[in-house]
Amino acid sequence: MSRLLPMIILLCFAFPIEGLAKTVDETEIDERVREIAKHLRCTVCQTENIWESGAPLAHQMRDVVRERVTLGHSNEDILIYFHSRYGDYIMMEPPKHGFNWLIWLGPFLLLLGGGVLLAREIKGWVTRTPAPPTEVLPPLDEESRRRIEQELQP
């Protein structure tokens, strides 16, 4: 019995370690699937990624992602595969080339254009505001001065 005891203890440790290793692997695969799926647009629901979408096609796409991750494909390879099937439309972030630059730069251009227009408008308002009179007023005559001084007396 004393000879078997170390073996029993070893077995007790061996099985949980194996189970733990599987859990860690599975979690890593899940994380990668989620990471990739969030970059891919659901083509039938259009404004959701395939991770968040409940559409059957999105579900099948997630399965394809999982299958390729399990086969050892890199994240980039999987994204390239989907892009080769559906083009730019599948990417949640449109690739930075050609006409897509409008999507990336459009908001900044609008902001810049808006800023320039606003500056021009403000400048216009300032220019159109009448300037204070610059003419020199005639000095007070002696009688008026005296009356003001009297009125100011407590």
């Binding site: 039938v44 096609l57 099948q60 796409m61 099937r85």
Partner: peptide, 12 residues
């Protein structure tokens, strides 16, 4: 599994 449709870039 719907994989053929994805291979063909099918939307619907």
């Amino acid at each position: 599994k719907g994989a053929l449709a994805i291979d063909f870039g099918v939307y619907g």
